[in-house]
Amino acid sequence: MSVLVYTENWDGKFKKLSFELISYGKELSKKLNTELVALSIGNVAESELQKLALYGADRIINVNKSELSFFDAQLYNSVLAKVTESVGAKLILFAHNNTGKALSPRLSVSLKAGLATAVIAQPDLTNGFIIRKKVFTSKAFANIKINSDIKILSLLQNSFGLLEDPKNAVIESFDTDMDFSDQKCKLMDVNKVSGKLILTDADIVVSGGRGMKGPENWGPIEELASLLGAATACSRPVADEHWRPHEEHVGQTGKVLSPSLYIACGISGAIQHLGGISNSKYIVAINKDPEAPIFEAADYGIVGDLSKVLPDLITAVKEFKA
């Protein structure tokens, strides 16, 4: 038996979330007294693959085939099912991101394995295998028992820390022995945001709402974000009115984030917005209305006018960084 972690690379470099998954998986594999296997699909250099061992991977399996250069959930899943069988994995871990959401349900059916998504903590193993997740768009928690022999989890990003635990892992290349000629999805165009921090990966997020008054006022938000190494986000009306791109829209109908710090500027804190940010470790609210509901969700708050508070904050951060 083993614990299998599905890792993901971005242009040949692993994402932070892959190391997070390995750290989580390592802790669990120790409890279960079993080895941790990391799987990488794609073209990744050996030196990069070795980084997986740094966080505790005992074995690293590399599948590098030109036919798999493009993510097709059905094909990737069939590779995963083969690898699972070959390493005898009883527990498979994914990130709860676009790829994990696409793959984990398919694998659940292929392996008849119970799936729990958006998991936020280590399982409780005292009475079976019980995991915890948020439900009702973060308004409640559920404890879910997985009863099947093989189990699959997808983990909410930024819910776990990185923990180094260096191992001497060998990199094994895995031959799938499969025919990939019948591709039903064809890639026509890719549009990658480059040089910009990916919102769902960001540790700090600076976000603006309608209280920012207009797109021309976003300079301070961007400046503050860049000073903090943060990504920028917005509320839904801001995206709907095209002040900001739709990729930045956060909330129940937009992106769900789990950063360490979320700074809400001129956001009232509607329940649908909170649905996207309540996984944040800390929330800061800046709003001129002391009664704004955002203050109920926030850890720290400043009641004041953004046209003054934001420039002051930028100065203070500059001094702090100096």
Binding site: A73, Q74, N77, H96, K101, A102, L103, S104, P105, R106, L107, S108, V109, S110, L115, T117, A118, K133, K134, V135, F136, T137, A142, Q252
Partner: peptide
Amino acid sequence: SDYNGGSVGGMLAEF
């Protein structure tokens, strides 16, 4: 938006 499974679509396709 109730149990936030995010799973039915992928499972259905695999079935």
